[in-house]
Amino acid sequence: MDGTDLGLWGVPLAMLAGAIRVSTPFIFVSLGECLTERSGRINLGLEGTLMMGAMTAYGTALLSGSPWLGVLVAAGVGLLLGALHAALCQLPKVNDIATGIGLMLFGTGLAFFLGKPYIQPKAPNLGALDLGAWSSISQVQQALQVNPLFLIGIALAFALAWALKNTRWGLIVRLAGESVDAALAIGASVGRVRLLATAVGGAFAGIGGAFLSLYYPGSWNEGLSSGQGLMAVALVIFARWDPIRCLWASLLFGAAGAISPALQSVGVTQGYYLFSAAPYVLTLALMIATCSPARSLRGAPGELGAVK
């Protein structure tokens, strides 16, 4: 590849490219968690769902030869795991945090176990759209190789925000999250709403996993997620349960993850461990900046974390 030397301008470009490449799993998992939490339930198990999604997508793509079928199967597996979490939480005196952690370990463990035969073989990739063909600079072309799932994720964020705000269905989800009494008063079944919201949220996380194994980094192995599912759950909190802000926060995390390699590649080598930690430092800083002991978190659904 004939690279033009962009010098330090390469860094913001690399961060943009990183945001586009790395953020998609964050977008899907955080939107899934956002939907689930807006219905009044926490699902910490999405890390496990992400891994199961990644593994089943890779396995399906390998066996069937169709990566998009893999995405579909991953969504289905996510749906089932989400539904399992919801069903368990439906039982009396069950804590959704504890169940979530249990399902996280279950999901990753099961994915490692069933994924053994898929570590070595090479499955077909999802491929990308070349949106940078207009540019003569190879770095720009490289940065603008966009996977369709990234665009779907953006559309999904806006669709979810609109639906939560403007549709009757969205109203019921929000009501289940804000006040069970009010939801019951209009005749909605809180249990069913949460079941559906959690299951659909799980399906989103499954698709996020499919992106990891089928596009970027694009192969199945046991270190694939390295905690991205958990980070995405935390991301929902600082996005204040708003799908659009989830999208921005995901992009920010993707860009932050690209800082360290981008700086090292242009020769800034001081303190790369610190830059590697950038996403985590960013989370902490934002949490501290936005938290206050005087009030509860703005935007937090009222029923969140309540134990029946």
Binding site: L13, G223, Q264, S265
Partner: peptide
Amino acid sequence: WSLPVKEAEATNSMIAQG
């Protein structure tokens, strides 16, 4: 030793540098 996303990012940012 095993950070797939970082490894892919590192590879891509080097490719961007030629």
